[in-house]
Design a protein around this nucleic acid. Sequence first.
DNA 1: ATTTAAATTGTTATAATATAACACTCTGTA
DNA 2: TACAGAGTGTTATATTATAACAATTTAAAT
Lengths: 129, 129
Amino acid sequence: MQNLSKNQQIIFDLIDKSNEPMKAYAILFNVQKKGIKAPLQVYRALDKLVEIGKIHKIESRNAFIACQNSSCQVSKATAFSICESCEKVTEINNSSLSKYLSNFKDRAGMKYSKYNLEFFGLCKKCITK
Amino acid sequence: MQNLSKNQQIIFDLIDKSNEPMKAYAILFNVQKKGIKAPLQVYRALDKLVEIGKIHKIESRNAFIACQNSSCQVSKATAFSICESCEKVTEINNSSLSKYLSNFKDRAGMKYSKYNLEFFGLCKKCITK
DNA sequence: ATTTAAATTGTTATAATATAACACTCTGTA
DNA sequence: TACAGAGTGTTATATTATAACAATTTAAAT
Ligand SMILES: [Zn+2]
Ligand SMILES: [Zn+2]
Ligand SMILES: [Zn+2]
Ligand SMILES: [Zn+2]
């Protein structure tokens, strides 16, 4: 596991300490005082962090969260639950699920190397509201 | 199943006869000769078509395909395979998979009402290249 | 230590994706 | 025929993401 570069570290630290997914331009705004001034600097760091599995992109939200699953070094098998009311996102770490999906074969004969799953619903808090 | 409005029908027909996912602005370009001139007209039709399950959004590609699964009237349980080489997208219609995912419960106690799954890999054609 | 290639950074400009706000029109139904 | 809800048309703008180019840093290979 290589070390992160300066920009990568700054941006990872920010996302990691956030308790919700962060959007690219919110990240940019937050790191401007650290000298990162342009969108591209943010996107490049995000690309790399996604590639090495330190963060994941929540595709339906165009937002990024730190990996909450220590075994998930590379972003090849990701699953999330998303509350449609409060937008809380949690990475699902369930070995039955990941085993089922990693072994899934469709009749089309495709060779899968990666998947991303997003569940939507209401979190515990929001159900009772 | 209500009828589609004029714009909805034009845009659905275009997506339905396409054999690949279409992006919003590609759709816009293609329907301009039919009098649909502004992005918002396209996005509004897309929103509705997604809502009633006639099309699905491929989140990782920001593109839309017609539902290929007659039983999928509403977009609450969707799964796709995506070739990372040729970008071919296919809707997966597998009752074992949909049963497994629809019944999936995480320990967090969330109530799921919807999911979207995207598999990535190489299609049959592209494996042999 | 010097060379070299790969990765990273900095910068400006621009492309691509999506929504806000407002006025008007159509459609079905009471 | 009045009414409500859905749909349309339009302009402007917000949000998300990449192109292109030059310079610098890093880590390995000689
Ligand atoms: Zn993870
Ligand atoms: Zn919630
Ligand atoms: Zn479908
Ligand atoms: Zn292919």
